[in-house]
Design a protein around this nucleic acid. Structure first.
Lengths: 118, 118
DNA sequence: CTGAATCCAGATGGATACTG
DNA sequence: CAGTATCCATCTGGATTCAG
């Protein structure tokens, strides 16, 4: 009977799928930088993020913010100013990413040393 | 004097860069699945990984394994069998990713529930 | 100010066939 | 078995312009 092996592989598949789910929500060149920018300041306007995230274009920023909103990681609030301004904020769910981002940051530092600076 | 703000922003930039360093090493459609496959079994052959990672082509597998090797996350060992076989294994450094992968997996499960199943 | 629309170059990745 | 080479469709993302 090969149940043990089968179950083991099933677990492995589930694990891989859930990691992929996470990565799908975070993929895109700027997502993590955008999240960092917002969470760092609490609330953040479109043009602010545009300045924070070095190199991003308004086209990409708009697109990735929309995806983050779809994934319920940020909220978008239009303010009735003249001209209008828009505030982005992390949702509670978005905030749960902070642990992961911290760990990625930590690993990234070690990794960079490993590859370059030795 | 604006030192506090400046330092804060400096910290933020560093953090974003190191996260990006980490993501650079892990980007690519299959990297995490490949790492999962290898670490799950200890050692793994090319054709094994090809089977484990659903949907990957030999072209992509070859390419991403090469990148993982460059980033010193896996080692490649040619065995003198007939025909030759190749074993891939996680380096010590590659193994340090397990925590992050676990967390991503955990977050991915919560996230999927949030977005779909409620 | 906050985007959306268009255009376009370059990267990504699948299918297939081939080599040692 | 473990890749490499080639062809080709699609995706990505920058620059620029336009709109509410």
């Amino acid at each position: 009977m090969r149940c043990a092996i089968t179950e083991f592989q099933q677990e492995q598949k589930k694990r891989m799928r859930s990691v992929q789910d996470a990565m799908d929500a975070l993929n895109g060149k700027w997502k993590i930088a955008i999240i960092s920018s917002i969470c760092c300041y609490g609330k953040r306007r479109f043009s602010d993020i545009l300045n924070d995230v070095e190199g991003v274009s308004n086209r990409m920023l708009s697109k990735e913010l929309k995806e983050l909103e779809l994934n319920q990681l940020v909220t978008r609030t239009v303010l009735a100013t003249q001209p209008i301004t828009v505030e982005y904020e992390l949702t509670e769910h978005g905030n749960t990413l902070q642990t992961i981002i911290s760990e990625l940051s930590g690993w990234g530092i070690v990794h960079r040393k490993k590859i370059t600076g030795k």
